[in-house]
Design a protein around this nucleic acid. Structure first.
Lengths: 216, 216
DNA sequence: CCTTTATTGGGTAGATTTACCCAATTTTGA
DNA sequence: TCAAAATTGGGTAAATCTACCCAATAAAGG
């Protein structure tokens, strides 16, 4: 099975270069080309490619918007971003748009081929410098849940009170649950606010969610 | 600069095979080997490798735990997982442990080399089938923020008020920001509570975070 | 043993919220 | 054009919160 390819780049030279580069590969066939986002979207309709090699900087519309449009109409078509941009901004947006690969133009030809083949299989190829950014984001997302420990010096009872406060319970309700005086609950809450340098229930709720004490 | 490598695998044959495979590469040098997690941790101390090729299934301790230990003591040492496991479970745990690469044993030799070189640069190489899992997770994390639409029939103004309420602002503060009467803010807030069947600011904060209107 | 910390409880006062009552103006869509 | 919805604003009252004041008892650690 040869992989049908759609080349999207506004520079004729780049397309020619890629054509040359990929010509020797027996499993890849460049079915058609496009120089603008609009052309690309139309070309997907006409040529039915397996993989779209998408530049991000296009004259009429961002390659990101084009990718969104293509994936929306044809989710089975894989889109590999091939671009000069190596920043988080474009990378994450491209992933959200549904890209199945992200390769900087400075990458080696074999890496582009690996990306095309992975995308054709429905997998995802990320250039190492990009993968690093995604893992960083992944770790940032996961950490807060682990951070249930080290709650800025809150005592056990304070954490217990905090949990109920964050879940929306009033002092009286918490007092009933913990079988203590509402005044004691209020005192715990005051100590919590002071320890954390917070000033309202709203901030307590956000703090509790950040720390993974309660789920949003 | 040659990359100093530590090979960790409990099978002698596998280590020999890797040694053979990497022998021809001029920029990679296998400095030492280990057959257990304990040996691996000690070897990092003694050999000072740039990159550790880590198997997950080890006799004494999981390669994941070993990775955690190594990264904790020597954050500058890169660890590349080389394993038969291709499931989310081990993959994500390995990332959390600080792995700078994840390559299944079925991968092509060049991919392993790419991973080693990327990890040595401080970047991250993820095998396409693994990258796919991470992107899936990324999209699952990000989606809620897109879900800012369809907010259970809240009007534009109500959403605006909700955002400020959730961020901890009082009615008076919001009134000043939006340049309307505090009474109007209160009215909007009341309508929001009623529409969402909520009864307090704490619940509004959780709702707003769930819907991605504000970050925790 | 003694000091510190955690946990408990009370009082007061002002700020804020929640929940109702009322209605005018503007915008939107049918 | 006309009705519905959105946005605006006011009044009142009870509930609740925030922020101080005070202190006793119990547990933990040096």
């Amino acid at each position: 099975m040869t992989i049908r390819l759609l080349l999207v780049d506004d520079h004729q030279v780049v397309r020619s270069g890629l054509r040359m580069l990929l010509a020797s590969e027996s499993d890849v066939e460049i079915t058609c080309e496009a120089g603008t986002a609009r052309e690309a979207i139309a070309a997907v309709e006409n040529c039915r490619p397996d993989v779209v090699l998408m530049d991000i900087g296009l004259p009429d519309m961002s390659g990101i918007a084009a990718t969104r449009a293509i994936k929306s109409a044809h989710p089975e078509v894989a889109v590999v971003a091939l671009t000069i941009h190596e920043d988080e901004e474009y990378f994450f947006k491209m992933l959200e748009a549904g890209a199945g690969g992200y390769v900087p133009k400075r990458a080696a030809p074999e890496e582009l081929l690996t990306a095309i083949r992975a995308a054709a299989r429905g997998e995802v190829y990320l250039y190492p410098s990009m993968a690093k950014l995604l893992v960083k984001d992944f770790l940032a997302q996961e950490r807060p849940e682990e951070g249930v420990t080290s709650l800025d010096g809150l005592t056990d009872r304070e954490q217990e009170v905090l949990r109920h406060v964050a879940e929306g319970a009033t002092n009286d309700e918490i007092a009933e649950i913990l079988v203590i005086s509402p005044k004691t609950v209020a005192r715990h809450r005051e100590n919590i606010l002071q320890k954390l340098s917070l000033h309202s229930r709203a901030e307590l709720v956000r703090y509790a969610i950040r720390k993974g004490i309660i789920k949003a």
